[in-house]
Design a protein around this nucleic acid. Sequence first.
DNA 1: ACTATTCATTATAATCAGTATAAAATAATG
DNA 2: CATTATTTTATACTGATTATAATGAATAGT
Lengths: 138, 138
Amino acid sequence: MNRLIETLKENECKVTLQRIAIYETLKNTKAHPNAEAIYKQLSPKYPTISLATVYKSLELFVSLGLIQAINVEENSFRYDGNFKSHPHLICSKCKKVEDLDEHPFANLCREVETLSGYSIEKQQLNFYGLCPDCIQKS
Amino acid sequence: MNRLIETLKENECKVTLQRIAIYETLKNTKAHPNAEAIYKQLSPKYPTISLATVYKSLELFVSLGLIQAINVEENSFRYDGNFKSHPHLICSKCKKVEDLDEHPFANLCREVETLSGYSIEKQQLNFYGLCPDCIQKS
DNA sequence: ACTATTCATTATAATCAGTATAAAATAATG
DNA sequence: CATTATTTTATACTGATTATAATGAATAGT
């Protein structure tokens, strides 16, 4: 939360209750919610918060590098409170999205630069399949 | 195109002019167009074709494994006439999407299975950065 | 602390991608 | 060639996201 406040001030953005609440909500979950889900989670506690504010705040946080937007094969964007690049696991049955924290793919970028001539800024690794829970059940 | 016709017949789907045209359009480009772009490209030659047909045909082709849908950080899906999994390079300046054909990442899936306990069916590797052309220009 | 200014929030309307529906057209089959 | 089932078309609709304009709140300067 300090990180949020510092970053907002550094960039001359106002520190508002809504921004803090949205940031906190995202930091306190591993569920990779979309804007709608964050809005619904906040609604009981902040009944007047607007969905547009959620969208705008998330967009701002992404542009400031505080969080990341992730797009799995869905029609809405999800958000990840962890700004560090890491692979995501998507269960095609229960649709949950998990992080793969310990992995040896931290720096494929350099290799891709050599192969392609691109200068790579970001890598996005998504793996689709069945999670252990769903394997068990089937 | 033979592949399309065979696959359609095997699956008891009708072979229509529209489906052939859409498939051909996608096979003959490396630009990874979205449905709208395919529709616009076909419109002059097939003025009565409907956007809905484009969407439905693409969906069908994906389900038959003839093409693949790819999602980079955009609000629409793009399509790739190559059904084999391969990494994509996205230029953050000119927004083009290219294939990385020769690469050593063909089978990260097995490794991810061991690390995660998931059973992985598909991997999606996207690399974002500047393409050689845009590096030159800047 | 008080006030002015600026930025953020809210509510709502608008947009855009994609999907559903129902009537008309076409492909496959005998 | 006629029948039948599927596909296409045009249009309406949905759901996610963005734009707009008015209100409200955070900050800077007193």
